[in-house]
Computed example of a mutant assay.
Amino acid sequence: MTENPQQPQDQPAPQLTEEEMAYVVSLFDMAREGRTEELLPAVQAGVPVNLTNGKGDTLLILAAYHQQEDTVAALLGAGADPDRVNDNGQTALMSAIFRGNEAVVRALLEAGASQTAGAHSAADFARVFERTDLLAVLEEYPAR
């Protein structure tokens, strides 16, 4: 008989210690601040590349929003899902469009980011936030 490695349904999930929680929070700070040289080894050591915070923001969404081009590239290279949607229906692509960062928009599109993932299309998002300069960039990439 084999053991079931899953936790029994009636037992609560283990809680993180204060130290562990501080470390997890620091990972999101690393993404925001572009501290790729600290963040990437953590991901390579086993931190989920699609880790989300309490708002559903992934490391990639935060890096894109804060215009951290190198961090975005490193997370994409490590397998981050560019189409993950946060609790507000936004993706990393929408974050980059909102901030008007063409380089991050291009990096995400080149990694296969969908222009229709999330609550709005990328083009609609660009129009709403008056980032119409990025519409030409979006048109360069086939919509998925």
Rank of each mutant, 00 (worst) to 15 (best):
V25C: 12
D10V: 13
L138Q: 11
D70I: 04
V105N: 02
P142D: 15
V137A: 01
P48R: 00
A42Q: 04
S95V: 01
T71F: 13
L135I: 15
G118P: 06
R84M: 12
D83S: 05
E33P: 03
L51T: 11
G100P: 03
A143Y: 14
R35V: 12
V137R: 02
P41Y: 11
A126E: 03
A126N: 03
L76K: 01
T116D: 15
A122Q: 10
R106P: 01
S114C: 04
E69D: 00
V49E: 02
D70F: 10
E140Y: 07
E3D: 13
E37T: 04
D124K: 14
R127A: 11
A42C: 04
E69V: 11
E37K: 07
A96M: 14
E38Q: 11
T58S: 14
E3Q: 12
E20K: 00
T116M: 10
E110K: 06
L138H: 09
T91E: 06
P48I: 02
Q44P: 07
D87R: 02
Q11E: 15
V104D: 02
L138I: 11
T71H: 01
R127W: 14
R99H: 07
T91Y: 06
A143C: 08
M94F: 07
V49I: 00
P8T: 09
L40F: 06
L76Y: 14
E130W: 10
E20M: 02
L40E: 00
